[in-house]
Design a protein around this nucleic acid. Structure first.
Length: 671
DNA sequence: GTCATGTATCAA
DNA sequence: TGATACATGACC
C-alpha cells in the first residue's frame, strides 16, 4: 500500500535513483529543445501521425524549427519523433500556440516542401474514417500516393489556356439534363441520379458534364469502375475538351506516373480528374462536380480497411464541399434511389417514347427452345436478322459463376427437398448435396416439370461460342471474357460472346443484344442478387445501337426481367428499396459486421454500446474456418452516424488497451 | 507501435 | 523483500 507521502517510504537509495533518472530525462528534453530555435511566426505544427493505432487518431503538436519555418506548411510530409520512434506525419495546421501542457518536441525533418494533403482532403479523410469506424491513417494511405522524389522535382505542365466549347449531344433524350448542365456551367451545384437510356454514350455524357463544369472555371472528379471504362471516358474527355485538360488516376499506373499525375492535380495544373475508386480522394482544385458511373459495380468498394465505397466517399465530399453530384448508370442502385427518396438529388431519366425508340426489349422463356438447344426460337430469329446488319452481343454467364445444379429439361434451379437450399456437386462421382444443410439428394425430381435429370447449368463463353458458331456458319465469332477481354469490336456482322462485365464496345452499338441463361444470376442467395442481375443485363443492353433489339432468355415473370423489359430501373430500385426497408436491410438500416476470433468478437460486443435500438445478430462462424466468427450490428438509418461513432469508440478503446484486433466493416458490400 | 510506470505474484 | 511478469496509459 503506497503511503500518502508518495516517495517518502522508498529506500533513500531508490529515491535518489528515481530522482536522478527524472532529472536526466528532463535535462535531455531541455537540451533537445534548447538545440532547436523555434520559428518566429506560428511555431506550432499540428500533425497527423501515420500510425495504425485507432486511439492515436488525432492531431499532435510539434515545435517548428526556425529553419523549417517556411517549408513546414499545412499539407507537407514530415518526420517526427513519437514515443521513441521516427514516424511519418502530415502537417495539417500551423498555430501560434499549443494546448498541450507539456513541452513540444521539434519536428525532426520536413520530408519535402510539397503540400500533398489539401485541407479539404484532411476533412474528407476524417469524415470517411468516422463513417467507416476506421483509422484516418488507413484512409490517408488510400488518399495520398507514395512519394516519388525524382518526379516531385519536375514541374507539372499547365493545362492549355482554352478548351473546346462544351457540347451536350450525348445527353439527348434525357430530362432535365440540359438544365443540369446549364446549372453546372452557371457555377451551380446540382445533384442528380441519372438512369441512362439504352444506346447512350455515357462516357461522352460524363465528359460533357465535366466540360460544362469546366466552363464555370471549376474542376470535376469522375469515378468509374475499371480500367476499360477509364479508357472510354479518357477518350471522350479528349474528344470534348482537347488534350491536356484532364488527368487519369488509376492504381495500375507505376509509382512515378501515379505520383506525377497526382501532383498535376494537387498543384492545380489539371482540374479534371478521371479514375477508379481511389481517385475519389483526389485534391481537385475548385471542385464543381463529382460523378460516379455504375455505382452498383462492386469494384467501387475498396477492399482495404476501412472499406470505403467510392459513391459514399463522393457523397461525403459533396456534403463537405458543396459541389454538384452525378450518380449515373444504366441500372440504379437502391442507395441511389435513396438519394431521390429523401429529395437530396433530382432524377435525370428518359421519357417513355425515347426508351421505346432506343431499344426494343423482350424476354423469351427458356422453355420455348428447340431440340434442347440453349437459345429458344424467338431469340434465334432476332440473332439471324440482326447479324445481317452488324455485330450482335451474346451475354453468357461465366462458367463457375454458380456451382449449383438445375433441371436438365426446364432449367429450374434444383433445390433441396428438406430445406430448399441449392443443390451442388461436391465431386465427380458423389450424388448432389444441398449447399445449406448438406443432405444428399438421391431421388431428386424437378419441382416444376417432374423431370429427374440434373445438369451443371453453366456453359462458359467458349462453349456458347462453339454452339452458336455451328448455327451461324460463316459468321465470325468473337469471344470476350476471363483474361481475354476485348475493349471494342468492329462494326461488321459478327457474333460477340461475352461474359457479364466483359462486353466489348461496338463502334455504333450492337444490332442486337441477347442475354442467355437469365435465370442463372437470379439463383444466387445473396443480398443483392436481383439488383446485381439487372445491373449486368442493363449494362449489356445499354450497348445496343439506337433502335436495336434486346432479347433476354429467362423467367419472364421475374421482377428483375420485367424491369429490364420495361426499362424501368427506377421502379425496380424503388421496389427493392421498399423490400429492404421491410427487412431492415441497408440502406434502410445502417449495418456493420464485426469479424474476428470468437473471444475478440465477444469482447468487442461487451464493450460496444450502440445507440438506443441497436440490434446485435450473432456472432456466427464464418465459412469453414472455426477460428473466425462474425457478428452483425444494425440500427435504423437515421442512427447510422451514431452507430459508426460507437464502433469507432470501441475500436479506439480496444486499440489503447492493446486488445486483439477485430475487423469492423460498415455497410459491407455483401454478407 | 514504444516507453515508463503501477500492481500482482511468488520464491526465498 | 526483491525479482519478475503483466497491465495500463501516455505518446505532442
Amino acid at each position: 500500500m503506497p503511503s500518502p507521502e508518495g516517495e517518502s517510504d522508498m529506500l533513500p537509495g531508490l529515491r535518489a535513483t528515481v530522482a536522478d533518472s527524472r532529472a536526466k530525462a528532463a535535462a535531455t528534453r531541455k537540451r533537445r529543445a534548447a538545440e532547436v530555435e523555434a520559428a518566429e511566426r506560428d511555431p506550432v505544427a499540428r500533425v497527423l501521425v501515420d500510425l495504425p493505432l485507432a486511439h492515436l487518431d488525432r492531431p499532435f503538436d510539434y515545435l517548428v524549427p526556425a529553419k523549417d519555418a517556411e517549408s513546414a506548411v499545412p499539407g507537407v510530409r514530415v518526420k517526427v519523433r513519437f514515443a521513441g520512434q521516427d514516424v511519418d506525419a502530415y502537417v495539417v495546421e500551423r498555430a501560434a500556440e499549443s494546448d498541450h501542457p507539456g513541452r513540444l518536441a521539434p519536428l525532426r525533418r520536413v520530408v519535402s516542401p510539397e503540400p500533398v494533403l489539401a485541407p479539404e482532403v484532411v476533412a474528407l479523410t476524417g469524415a470517411v474514417a468516422e463513417r467507416y469506424a476506421g483509422s484516418r491513417a488507413d484512409v490517408l494511405r488510400l488518399a495520398v500516393p507514395p512519394r516519388h522524389a525524382t518526379t516531385e522535382a519536375k514541374p507539372s505542365a499547365p493545362a492549355p489556356e482554352t478548351a473546346s466549347a462544351a457540347t451536350r449531344e450525348a445527353w439527348t433524350g434525357h430530362e432535365p439534363a440540359a438544365a443540369f448542365l446549364a446549372h453546372l456551367t452557371d457555377g451551380g451545384s446540382p445533384r442528380a441520379v441519372w438512369s441512362a437510356a439504352p444506346a447512350t454514350d455515357w462516357a461522352a455524357a460524363l465528359a460533357e458534364a465535366a466540360a460544362a463544369t469546366y466552363a464555370s472555371g471549376r474542376g470535376s472528379l469522375l469515378v468509374v469502375p475499371d480500367r476499360r471504362d477509364v479508357d472510354r471516358v479518357d477518350a471522350a474527355l479528349t474528344q470534348v475538351l482537347g488534350e491536356g485538360h484532364h488527368v487519369v488516376l488509376t492504381a495500375d499506373a507505376g509509382p512515378a506516373a501515379r505520383y506525377r499525375d497526382f501532383l498535376a492535380v494537387s498543384r492545380g495544373a489539371r482540374r479534371i480528374v478521371l479514375g477508379t475508386r481511389a481517385a475519389a480522394f483526389a485534391p481537385v482544385r475548385d471542385l464543381g462536380l463529382v460523378a460516379i458511373w455504375d455505382d452498383g459495380d462492386d469494384l467501387h468498394a475498396e477492399p482495404r480497411a476501412p472499406y470505403p465505397h467510392a459513391r459514399e466517399v463522393l457523397l461525403l465530399r459533396a456534403d463537405l464541399q458543396g459541389c454538384g453530384v452525378l450518380v449515373g448508370g444504366f441500372a440504379r442502385t437502391v442507395e441511389a434511389q435513396q438519394l431521390l427518396r429523401t429529395g437530396w438529388a433530382r432524377e435525370i431519366t428518359s421519357p417513355r417514347e425515347v426508351l421505346r425508340a432506343r431499344a426494343r426489349v423482350s424476354v423469351v422463356e427458356a422453355g420455348e427452345r428447340e431440340h434442347g438447344a440453349r437459345v429458344p426460337r424467338a431469340a434465334y430469329d432476332v440473332l439471324r436478322s440482326a447479324t445481317a446488319e452488324g455485330p450482335v452481343l451474346v451475354q453468357s454467364p461465366r462458367a463457375g459463376y454458380l456451382p449449383s445444379l438445375a433441371c436438365e429439361r426446364c432449367r429450374t434451379p434444383a433445390r433441396c427437398a428438406a430445406c430448399t437450399g441449392p443443390l451442388q456437386l461436391s465431386g465427380p462421382t458423389d450424388p448432389p448435396r444441398c449447399r445449406w444443410c448438406g443432405q444428399q439428394a438421391r431421388d431428386w425430381a424437378c419441382g416444376e416439370c417432374g423431370h429427374r435429370g440434373l445438369r451443371a447449368p453453366v456453359l462458359g463463353g467458349a462453349r456458347t461460342a462453339e454452339e452458336l458458331g455451328r448455327s451461324f456458319p460463316g459468321l465470325p465469332v468473337l469471344v470476350s471474357g476471363g483474361d481475354q477481354v476485348r475493349a471494342t469490336v468492329p462494326d461488321r456482322p459478327a457474333l460477340v460472346v461475352a461474359t457479364p462485365g466483359a462486353e466489348p464496345l461496338a463502334a455504333v452499338g450492337y444490332a442486337a443484344v441477347v442475354l442467355l441463361d437469365c435465370w442463372l444470376p437470379l439463383a444466387r442467395a445473396e443480398l443483392r442478387t436481383d439488383e446485381e442481375a439487372l445491373r449486368r443485363w442493363a449494362n449489356a443492353a445499354g450497348l445496343v445501337r439506337p433502335g436495336g433489339h434486346v432479347v433476354a432468355v429467362g423467367p419472364a415473370e421475374h421482377p428483375a426481367l420485367q424491369a429490364l423489359v420495361r426499362w424501368d430501373p427506377a421502379g425496380f430500385a424503388e421496389r427493392e428499396a421498399a423490400q429492404r426497408s421491410e427487412a431492415h436491410l441497408p440502406p434502410a438500416s445502417r449495418m456493420a459486421t464485426i469479424i474476428g476470433t470468437p473471444g475478440a468478437v465477444d469482447d468487442m460486443l461487451t464493450l460496444f454500446s450502440g445507440p438506443e435500438g441497436t440490434e446485435v445478430l450473432g456472432p456466427v462462424p464464418v465459412g469453414d474456418d472455426e477460428d473466425e466468427v462474425r457478428a452483425v450490428v444494425r440500427v435504423p438509418r437515421r442512427l447510422g452516424a451514431a452507430l459508426s461513432g460507437a464502433l469507432g469508440e470501441v475500436q479506439r478503446l480496444r486499440s489503447a488497451r492493446k486488445l486483439e484486433a477485430v475487423r469492423v466493416q460498415v455497410d459491407p458490400f455483401s454478407l
